[in-house]
């Protein structure tokens, strides 16, 4: 039971990380109609900048503003130089231009930091475990990620539903042309949304630092999963992205935790482990395929 709860928390933690990325991606998709493959690169930039500053200064806390600032800056620059030219182009152009960005960023990071992964140690405050239930010890750092993620989700909910900017964002994702026709400075709104998305991606990247290796290519791994989240949740829907992230995080984590064990009962050890790992990696894609076949526009978009 404690093992199950631990896996559940791990799933939620992974889901929350996915949400931080998916929220930005789905907004960029929904409002600007741009498929941004470079979102994973922004995540990587946040991770590198934050981790590097934290390692140089020796203070984990200084890494946070550094990571966030670098990611947001990268996002605004990307929007200004490249993505701005892609509005209204077809998806193919968007995929390829942002694919080009991935190549550029990956190589630039390799040139700056080399191929060795960077590491950052956790601050003393967040190191260690806490006993949540009798017998259930859970790392404080992972709990902190969950809390931050849920706070961001709440903040986004308030931002989107209670403020004027949020109103424009909602209007923009429903009918872009109408918002423009009503005299809203759409370009500013676009830059703002893109920057916000980048900021969240950077936050996710920095928080991933102490538990995953900060290395080139970290962005692509999580990017594809994030796209799965966005598509399952429904393009443009933050609420959809939130629930899809949690579902996917939990499904992925539990498959990885339990499938090899189940397979080992019918197969030889090492082969079962390999096959289990393979099938667990397939799990989320299978889930997406099933969801799309039943609801072609995603779970949280009403079919019109």
């Amino acid at each position: 039971m404690t093992l199950f709860l631990e896996q559940l928390l791990n799933g939620v933690q992974f889901g929350v990380m996915l949400f931080l990325l998916a929220a930005g991606l789905t907004l960029i998709f929904g409002i600007m109609g741009v498929i941004n493959l470079a979102h994973g690169s922004i995540y990587m930039i946040g991770a590198y900048a934050g981790t590097w500053v934290a390692a140089e200064t020796g203070s984990f806390w200084l890494g946070i503003p550094a990571g966030l600032a670098a990611a947001a800056f990268a996002g605004v620059v990307i929007e200004f130089l490249v993505v701005r030219r892609l509005y209204g182009r077809d998806h193919l152009d968007q995929v390829l231009a942002t694919f080009g960005l991935i190549l550029i960023f990956n190589q630039a990071i390799t040139m700056l930091f080399g191929r060795q992964p960077l590491f950052v140690s956790m601050p003393a405050l967040l190191d260690g475990s806490v006993e949540l239930l009798p017998g259930l010890f859970y790392p404080v750092y992972r709990l902190a990620i969950i809390v931050v993620g849920l706070l961001v989700a709440l903040g986004l909910y308030l931002l989107i539903n209670k403020t004027r900017v949020g109103m424009l964002v909602r209007a923009g994702s429903t009918n872009r042309e109408m918002v423009r026709a009503l005299g809203v400075d759409v370009r500013l709104l676009y830059t703002l949304v893109f920057g916000l998305g980048a900021l969240l991606a950077g936050l996710a990247g920095f928080m991933a630092g102490p538990i995953l290796a900060v290395q080139v290519g970290m962005g692509e791994q999580i990017l594809i999963t994030t796209f799965v989240v966005v598509v399952i949740g429904g393009v443009g829907s933050i609420r959809g992205a939130f629930f899809a992230s949690l579902i996917l995080g939990i499904v992925d984590t539990s498959l990885r935790a339990y499938l090899p064990g189940l397979l080992r009962q019918i197969m030889v050890g090492p082969e079962a482990d390999a096959l289990g790992a393979g099938i667990s990696s397939m799990g989320i894609y299978l889930l997406m395929a099933i969801v799309l076949l039943i609801r072609p526009k995603g779970l949280f978009i009403r079919n019109s």
């Binding site: 390829l96 231009a97 694919f99 080009g100 960005l101 991935i102 190549l103 550029i104 190589q107 630039a108």
Partner: peptide, 8 residues
């Protein structure tokens, strides 16, 4: 890096 720039 070059390939990415050309593609872009």
């Amino acid at each position: 890096l070059g390939l990415g720039l050309i593609l872009l």
